[in-house]
Design a protein around this nucleic acid. Structure first.
Lengths: 204, 204
DNA sequence: TCATTGACAAACCAACTAGTCTGTTTAAAT
DNA sequence: ATTTAAACAGACTAGTTGGTTTGTCAATGA
């Protein structure tokens, strides 16, 4: 009766539904049955596309979360001429973010905190994504150094690591307090830090 | 045959064992059976002292994690005359920390990230502890303002929030990378931020 | 000395959970 | 038109999970 959809559609539907459940309940708390219930599919469909819950989890991480990451955190870095302003804009231009991001936290970091100690496969995949992110920030800072905007004495990698962890920490606290203002407050204080990276005098 | 231990001993044994499992696997991943197996007790013992897994979780939070918090994060703040040095010492004097803290992360933040969106009881209890911590840092900064060490123009509450989130973020990234150096690196960068809080000229 | 009770052990249970197995339907190929 | 295989549905299962019930034994008080 109902026409069958293309396999790629079904696979994507499952990934999207799994992402939502995983975002809210974590990987261990995510229930296969609940995911399927939300999109009105049965076990047969899921286990035709994925061999196990773990493989589904890895797929959500690599095909949903990672993609999301690039769009929300990395691409915006190139929209500004001033690299420090670009980094700070992450905190100021977040009106288009969904409330779920504040209430449920960063999907990548959630998974990192939950799975890093108990699943090496998750941990390594997440570590790579974090490192890509850190590199993107670091490159932005290096570009700033070449432009004479960022001080040459600072270590871009260390700074990028700190900026990244501060953002994740801020999102985590926002989730616990269920209050966006926590995030914006942290953004204002991060600005103070970013200003210390600014080149003071003449550049080499 | 075997002499019965005092009730308080048993209760504490359960709390300690539950804390360990919760620290590694999270609340949802913590298995009652495994906790009891580790200390060679049976269901009857646990459900005599606690009415449910949730109540056990709340007890671990309030009697183990909270206590740990004060000892590791709040008490050290009073051991220094310079408040900014006191805050930074959290990062520098961590040799006595167990490796579990780096590998498994901050128990309080772990629980916050996992349970905040799905259990209001956990969320509120955790929020209070975080607020106490933030207040302790804020008070340290205020004391620094009175001493003329910390600039009067800064907002102690905002700064405390940022410091707290940065620490938690740093610990989270350390856990994912399984490398202490990440934490120390973030500590060095936080120092740059802390220096911006230092009073520049004469104090009022 | 004996009844009572605190502090558990042992066995049990219903609900759940990831995963499997066997169809069945639809679209494409021949 | 018939075969074939992709793309599922539906029913089932073994193992797990938090929680319960009943029994037991030592300490305690009368």
């Amino acid at each position: 009766m109902t026409t069958k959809s293309k396999p790629e559609d079904t696979r994507l539907k499952i990934l999207n539904a799994a992402f939502k459940e995983l975002h809210k309940h974590g990987y261990q708390g995510m229930r296969i049955d609940q995911v399927l219930k939300n999109i009105d599919l049965k076990k047969g469909a899921l286990y035709y596309h994925f061999s196990s819950k773990q493989e589904l989890g890895y797929a959500v991480l690599e095909e949903q979360i990672q993609k999301n990451m690039y769009k929300l955190w990395i691409e915006p870095l190139n929209k500004f001429t001033d690299p420090l302003e670009a980094i700070h804009s992450i905190f100021t231009e977040r009106d288009q973010w969904s409330n779920e991001f504040f209430n449920l936290g960063c999907p990548l970091n959630n998974l990192a905190q939950e799975m890093s100690p108990i699943d090496e496969g998750f941990r390594q995949r997440i570590e790579k994504i974090f490192q890509n992110w850190q590199t993107a920030i670091s490159d932005t800072l290096k570009k700033g150094q070449e432009q004479g905007i960022v001080d040459n004495s600072i270590n871009p990698d260390d700074c990028a690591c700190f900026i990244l962890t501060s953002m994740e920490g801020a999102l985590g606290m926002t989730k616990n307090h269920q209050n966006k203002e926590v995030f914006y407050s942290c953004g204002r204080e991060l600005k103070r830090y970013l200003d210390t990276l600014r080149s003071t005098g003449g550049n080499v």
